[in-house]
């Protein structure tokens, strides 16, 4: 089955009010080209589930978001995501703030088709008191109470991979695939942008196949977009764009705010965006970060 499509076709499959999971972690390997296509669309009232970075900040700033399910939203070297902060501090979004591991459990529960997974995580904290929707239950096996972390069911997930074939076999060759396999499994439909579209023969080498983290049946669409994670990183291909993130964060302090950022960079297409940030060669030349 050929699952190749365009970013526009992906967004056409999304609807107002959907719950959308976004893979990656903070400023690392986010499907930013797909996020940008949402920014260009009329989509609204989305619930976003993410280990958040500028993906969450931009969608909030553009008024696309009704609710964010998060454990953090951060650009790492800029700890506080500027537009997520604005959205929170103006009270313009609903939130479900949970622990990083609780999010993993919620995605697993959704993936496995079970209503919740019991855990100790969250007990005694405001993650429980501020989330009346997360229940604390008695155990049939001991005298303790447990958090029943509910399934985080996703209508769609957006993920960025290094390489994929047109059938949806996706490779993440960077050192960490984060929770992307669970985002892929937890969603009704998963759309994957990739830096490079490869022939299926590429995966005949077991060393390459070892870096495929979910089966192709979990992938609904494949969108080849070289540099599509920019300004986030896509290890081992390119790092995150420190200068661009600084300009992005600075725009939040300016009078024009996110409108200025959009006007300067977004463009009508990914091609225009890449031209506005110095071109694909410049993106691919960004050094990987040292931790």
């Amino acid at each position: 089955m050929n699952k190749q499509m365009t970013a526009t076709e992906v967004v056409a499959q999304l609807e107002d009010g959907m719950t959308v999971g976004i893979g990656g972690w903070g400023p690392r390997r986010k499907p930013m080209a797909l996020v940008r296509e949402i920014l260009r669309s009329s989509l609204k009232d989305l619930t976003i589930v993410a280990y958040g970075g500028a993906d969450v900040g931009m969608l909030c700033a553009a008024g696309k978001v009704k609710k964010v399910v998060f454990a953090f939203v951060s650009l790492d070297f800029i700890p506080l995501e500027p537009y997520f902060r604005q959205a929170r501090q103006s009270g313009s979004i609903e939130v479900m703030e949970i622990d990083e591991g609780m999010m993993l459990l919620g995605l697993r529960a959704a993936s496995w088709g079970i209503p919740f997974i019991p855990t100790e995580v969250g007990l005694g904290t405001d993650v429980i008191t501020q989330n009346p929707g997360i229940k604390v239950i008695d155990s049939p096996y001991d005298e303790k109470e447990w958090v029943a972390m509910p399934a985080l069911k996703l209508d769609a997930s957006l993920i960025h991979a290094d390489k994929a074939d047109a059938r949806g076999v996706c490779q993440i060759a960077g050192p960490d695939h984060y929770m992307d396999d669970w985002f892929a499994r937890a969603a009704v439909k998963t759309f994957v942008s990739c830096d490079e579209l490869v022939e299926s023969e590429y995966f005949h080498d077991p060393a390459q196949a070892r870096m495929v983290h979910w089966e192709r049946s979990m992938t609904s669409g494949v969108v080849p977009i070289a540099g599509g994670a920019h300004p986030t990183s896509c290890s081992p291909l390119y790092g995150f764009d420190v200068a661009h993130f600084k300009a992005y964060a600075a725009s939040a302090k300016g009078e024009g705010g996110f409108k200025d950022y959009v006007q300067k960079y977004l463009g009508a297409s990914e091609q225009e965006y890449q031209n506005n940030v110095g071109g694909l060669d410049a993106i691919c030349a960004i050094e990987l970060p040292t931790y």
Binding site: A71, Q89, D99, E100, G101, M102, V121, D126
Partner: peptide
């Protein structure tokens, strides 16, 4: 500060603190 729905200063989020602290 502020209220939970509209905090005066939003910071990182709970991150892994709930799980770390009980584990």
């Amino acid at each position: 500060g502020g209220s939970y729905d509209k905090p005066k200063t939003m910071m990182l989020g709970a991150r892994g603190f709930p799980g770390n602290s009980i584990s």
